[in-house]
Amino acid sequence: MRAGKDAGGRLRGRARTFLRLHGHALFSSLGDLWRAPLMTCMTLMVIAVTLALPLTFYLTLANLQRLSGGLEESWKVSLYLDPKLDEKQAAPLLARLRKQPAVAAVHLIGKEAGLMDFRRHSGFGEVLEALPENPLPVVIEVTPHPRWENPQRLAELVAAWEKIPQVDFVQWNMRWLQRLKGWLQLAERGVAGLGALLSLTVLLVVGNTIRLELENRHEEIEVMKLLGATHRFIRRPFIYSGFWYGSTGGLMALILAWLLSAVMRAPAKSLAALYGAAFDIEFLSLPEVLAFAGFSVVLGVSGAWLVVTRHLWRLRI
């Protein structure tokens, strides 16, 4: 009973010492940063801008991806027939297509129906009024069988349809959607690469700032070692400096990126309205904000850790 009590007391004592040492490091590092406000502010701005850059790219990309995801994943293929053909002349082709195993459904859009559609959506209705006759072709809309819902198989199908003499050209929504996705994937790689490079920059900026601080306090560190300080004790306030640089810089980057997205919100909205779409720029979600903040802290702390550990390792007393 008594032994248990003693052990509990020892543990509490150890916890108190631990908290005291960390509390001291936390506030002494904050005090050190506060004593050189200009230098600290400049370093923080460099970190903030460096982090805000990939963050903004990421936001832009995420919003574009959301936009492309909102586009209906349509596998429908439109066959635009020769404008000289009318609905009646298109009927045999329609029947032939319907029999193909790759075709699930066909739908014929006549010249008149096409005209009405065009009037409704394009806003160029008056232009058509001025024309002597309806210039629109007959269109056959083909819905492929689910087994052909694959870009490569569909491409083969489309190539075959393009060879049909009555067909003027084939429009395939999936194709440009695929291309857009390809571009976005490429941009994603680019943003990831850029993010990695700029993260490395933050690591170096924090590391270099801490290195200067170490050099300024070289004598003090030597004295502390002679007074029996462990490497951990000496390292601790510098690690906390790294923590402050990472967290504050990350927070500032978040604010910068948020301001930028707020500025772009209204023009993006009105641009989307022109396309008849409702689109709103979205900022990071809460988990994303937390992940970003955590990552910034990790960058700051590891930059500091690397530099201090190397410095202490080279100190030979």
């Binding site: 004598e219 003090e220 004295v223 007074l227 029996g228």
Partner: peptide
């Protein structure tokens, strides 16, 4: 890594004081 704990049991005084 054990050196700090030995040093804590020594009092060191220097010619150039070595104050912070």
């Amino acid at each position: 890594r054990k050196i700090p704990f030995v040093r804590r049991r020594l009092g060191l005084i220097f010619q150039d004081y070595r104050l912070i």
